[in-house]
Nucleic acid binder design. Structure first.
Lengths: 158, 158
DNA sequence: TTTCATGTAACAATACATGTTGCGTGATGG
DNA sequence: CCATCACGCAACATGTATTGTTACATGAAA
């Protein structure tokens, strides 16, 4: 099932999966997580490899293996996760030329560039202010009032 | 010469061209402008069509035809131009699902979405604060000290 | 009426992200 | 010791958007 995404949703997807993992103990296989991300196991491993390298996750092979959370949710921010993903491009727009000789273009680049940089910096700052624990807490607030606790299985048609 | 750009540089390119046009009177052909944008005439027309529809530019066919500025630089902001381009996507990232049933994903979307919206809003605000006249003025400041005034021809290898 | 320039549609080429397959590696359990 | 399970990784396939390119119609000026 090919489904081209206009905007990169890896951060969104990985956060989703991390919160789900926190709700249930034990290792989670790539296959299980793939269902929650509507993708396949290889893509999951690809995306989560960076988180493992940065020590936010652990993975284990063989029987009973899978992915385990290895970080403190209250000390891990969205920015940490963003960086572990390899700092994907934030803006879809940019300057035509990085170091133009043309003075006109230098003026354009200066104006646009500073605006772009400010927007990026602002987003990263906000990311740095939100921890995974914050997200999880928000989730639990939303869950208050609901009867059946959502799991990877019943919410994502596994 | 195929040259795929990772980030959309139409705004950057169009601003560049507009400032150049302001430096020299008379209509400018798509072909001339294409040289400054390192592309070809059809692409130029495509990009500038929106600016014509919004009344920022006029175009004329036939002998002596071409593109003419039809707006007041001191009253036209980068945001106006951005909108005339069709409001291209600003962010390269986004939420995986817009209206998820999963409460976990709702929590993720809320956090990420508000950050995304804030960044976009900030960029648009900054765009709205800069006029084409500001850019042009900055260009003229940069030009002080340089001997040969840059034209479409001598700066872009026409 | 010839030339020039835009307007537009259709088509081609490219880059990229994602999906997919296959095989290697290590760990577990019988 | 062997079968199974799950990750690791590389290679390949597919789908999509963007950009470049070609072709032709339209209208204006010399």
């Amino acid at each position: 099932m090919y489904c081209y995404m206009k905007r990169d949703s890896r951060l969104s997807g990985v956060l989703h999966v991390l919160l789900h993992m926190a709700e249930q103990p034990g290792p989670h296989t790539s296959e299980t997580l793939a269902l929650a991300m509507n993708t396949n196991p290889v893509v999951v491993r690809r995306i989560m490899a960076g988180l493992r390298e940065q020590g936010f996750l652990r993975s284990q092979k063989g029987h009973g293996g899978g992915w385990t959370i290895a970080c403190d949710f209250s000390r891990t921010t969205l920015r940490d996760i963003y960086e572990a993903l390899g700092e994907p491009e934030i803006l879809a727009m940019g300057n035509r030329t990085e170091t133009p000789g043309c003075l006109v273009e230098q003026a354009v680049n200066a104006a646009l560039g500073s605006a772009f940089d400010a927007a990026e910096a602002m987003l990263l700052t906000r990311f740095g202010e939100v921890t995974l624990a914050d997200l999880s807490a928000d989730f639990h607030v939303r869950m208050a009032g609901h009867t059946t606790p959502p799991t990877l299985e019943n919410e994502h048609g596994a």
